[in-house]
Amino acid sequence: MENVKPGDKLLIHAYKHNGNLYRSWDSGVVLESNSEGLVVINKDVLITEISGRKWKTNEPAIWFFFKESWYNIICMFKETGINYYCNLSSPYIVESNTIKYIDYDLDIKVFNDGSFKILDLKEFNRNRINFNYSRTIVETVWEHIDKLKEIIKEKKGLFDHRYVEQIWNNFIKNNFS
C-alpha cells in the first residue's frame, strides 16, 4: 500500500468479485490515515457507473475504509440528519493514488433514527452464483453483517452522531477542501 496522508486526494474504485470495475468516484480527500484504515471526505464528487451514467453526490459525506473489516461506511449529512450507508466489501487497498475494494453487493442503510434496512439481497444471491463466491466469502460477509447490526443497535462509534459530527468539524477546521 502507498503512504497516504491527510490532505491527499484519491480516486475511489469499486470492483465486482470478477475484477471488473463497476463504479468510480473522482476524488476523496483523506482526513485521516491510521493503523485501522482511512477516513475520507466526499463533497460534490462525480460518480461514474460502468454503464457510463454519471452523477454527483448530493450531500457531503465521511467515508470510513477499514484494513481488516469486510465493509466500508459512508456517513451522509442530509437535511434530515446523518444517514449511513454500509457497503459489504473486501478490506481496501491503495494503488496508484486509488482506494480499491471489491463490493459484495449487500448493503445496510441506517437512518437518522437508528433504524436500518438490509439492501440488495437478490443481487448478492445472484452474484454469489454468477461469480462463484467461495463459502468462506459468503460466511465472512454474513459475519460482518451481524457485526454491523450489533454496532448499529448500540449507536456507538461511527453510529454515534456526535462522533461523526466531531470528525466533520475537524475537517472544516483543517480546511482540506
Rank of each mutant, 00 (worst) to 15 (best):
V39Q: 00
Y71V: 10
E59D: 09
W55K: 08
N72M: 05
G52Y: 11
E36L: 08
Y71F: 15
T57M: 14
W55R: 14
Y71A: 11
E36A: 11
Y71N: 13
N72Y: 02
V45I: 14
T48H: 08
G37Y: 04
K56W: 05
K43P: 06
S51T: 15
S51W: 08
I41S: 02
Y71S: 14
E36T: 06
T57E: 12
T57Y: 13
F64K: 02
I62R: 00
L38S: 11
S51D: 13
I73V: 15
I50Q: 13
A61Y: 03
K56G: 01
R53M: 11
F65D: 01
P60R: 01
I62M: 11
I41N: 00
F65R: 04
L38N: 07
A61V: 01
E36W: 02
G37N: 01
K56N: 05
N58S: 10
E68C: 06
E36C: 00
W70H: 15
K56H: 10
K54W: 02
I50N: 12
N58Y: 10
E49T: 10
L38K: 02
W70R: 11
F64A: 03
G37M: 02
V45C: 11
W63T: 06
G52E: 10
T57Q: 09
K56R: 14
K67A: 06
W63I: 02
W63V: 04
E68P: 04
D44S: 07
D44H: 08
I73G: 08
R53S: 08
F66C: 07
N42H: 04
P60F: 00
L46F: 05
W63H: 09
K67P: 02
K67F: 08
P60K: 00
V45E: 07
K54S: 12
N72F: 06
Y71P: 08
T48K: 15
V40L: 05
K43M: 08
G52W: 13
W55E: 09
I73M: 13
E68M: 05
T48N: 13
K67E: 10
E49Q: 14
A61F: 04
E49V: 11
V40P: 03
F65Q: 03
K56Y: 14
W55D: 01
G52H: 13
G37E: 01
G37T: 03
L46A: 07
P60N: 02
G37L: 06
I73Q: 07
L38F: 03
E59K: 10
W63P: 00
N72R: 08
K43F: 02
P60W: 00
V45S: 09
P60Y: 03
I50W: 05
F64W: 12
G37C: 00
T57P: 11
A61L: 02
Y71H: 15
W55I: 04
D44R: 07
F64H: 09
I50M: 10
E68R: 12
S69H: 12
G37P: 02
T48G: 10
G37S: 01
T57V: 12
K54L: 00
F66Q: 04
I50V: 13
E49L: 15
G52C: 08
E49M: 15
I73N: 12
